[in-house]
């Protein structure tokens, strides 16, 4: 059973998650006109920057986050930004969009100059997230858990982060049982996606390095 306190916690997190989305004018640009590969790249960079800003605003609203050490806050955000971004993108790409929009978006990503060996695992991840059919609360909580990962580089007070993360894990576990009673392994499968996310983020770092070299 989810306690009243836990319900309130979920509400705060989901409200913040909904309030902090990429601004419409930035998102709209993705669906406009044809761009060259370079313009596509710049546009995706702008999107990524916007996503990080939105992520920080969301994170500030996670109960307890601002009471963590300031440098630990930065380490957590730095360590999770890319993963949180992939989660949000998966959610966007799996949403039912007006006909043709998904294709335009996919095409844009494919034409941005990102190498195929990175694109394939990325789209595979988006697909595997889509197959979970997460409810909205679960998406917001999973993102929160990603952000509150204690073993990110340079986090000093791991125990404080762990305590916050465990509070959210406990709610998510209960929520999974409630929303997916026919699938007792659902919570474990959600956590499994976090491992996939780490792998993807590792690929991403490699990809950035090769870009810098070029």
């Amino acid at each position: 059973e989810i306690t009243k306190k836990q319900q309130a916690l979920v509400k705060v997190i989901v409200d913040a998650y909904d309030r902090h989305q990429i601004p419409q004018d930035v998102a709209k640009k993705l669906l406009q006109d044809q761009y060259s590969a370079e313009e596509n790249f710049l546009l995706l960079t702008e999107m990524a920057t916007s996503q990080v800003q939105v992520l920080v605003e969301f994170t500030k609203n996670i109960p307890g986050f601002l009471s963590l050490d300031r440098e630990d806050q930065i380490a957590l955000l730095k360590g999770s930004a890319v993963e949180a971004m992939f989660l949000r993108s998966a959610q966007v790409l799996n949403k039912k969009m007006p006909s043709g929009h998904t294709e335009v978006l996919e095409e844009r990503i494919r034409k941005s100059g990102i190498s195929e060996e990175f694109i394939t695992p990325m789209f595979n991840f988006y697909k595997s997230i889509g197959e979970l059919h997460m409810v909205h609360e679960e998406q917001a909580l999973l993102t929160t858990i990603t952000i509150l990962t204690p073993d990110r580089p340079y986090v000093k007070d791991q125990l404080a982060v762990e305590r916050l993360q465990e509070t959210i894990l406990d709610v998510l576990r209960k929520m999974c049982l409630l929303h997916h009673p026919q699938d007792p392994q659902y919570f474990a499968r959600l956590l499994g996606r976090l491992t996939e996310l780490r792998t993807l983020s590792h690929y991403h770092a490699e990809m950035l390095t090769s870009w810098r070299v070029n």
Binding site: E46, T49, V52, V56, E57, K60, I74, A81
Partner: peptide, 21 residues
């Protein structure tokens, strides 16, 4: 523009300021 900043700079700026205001 913000897109010229590195990840850590974007995070620091966003943590200090409030984009909603």
């Amino acid at each position: 523009p913000a897109s010229n900043l590195g990840l850590e700079e974007i995070i620091r700026k966003a943590l200090m300021g409030n984009l909603e205001e």
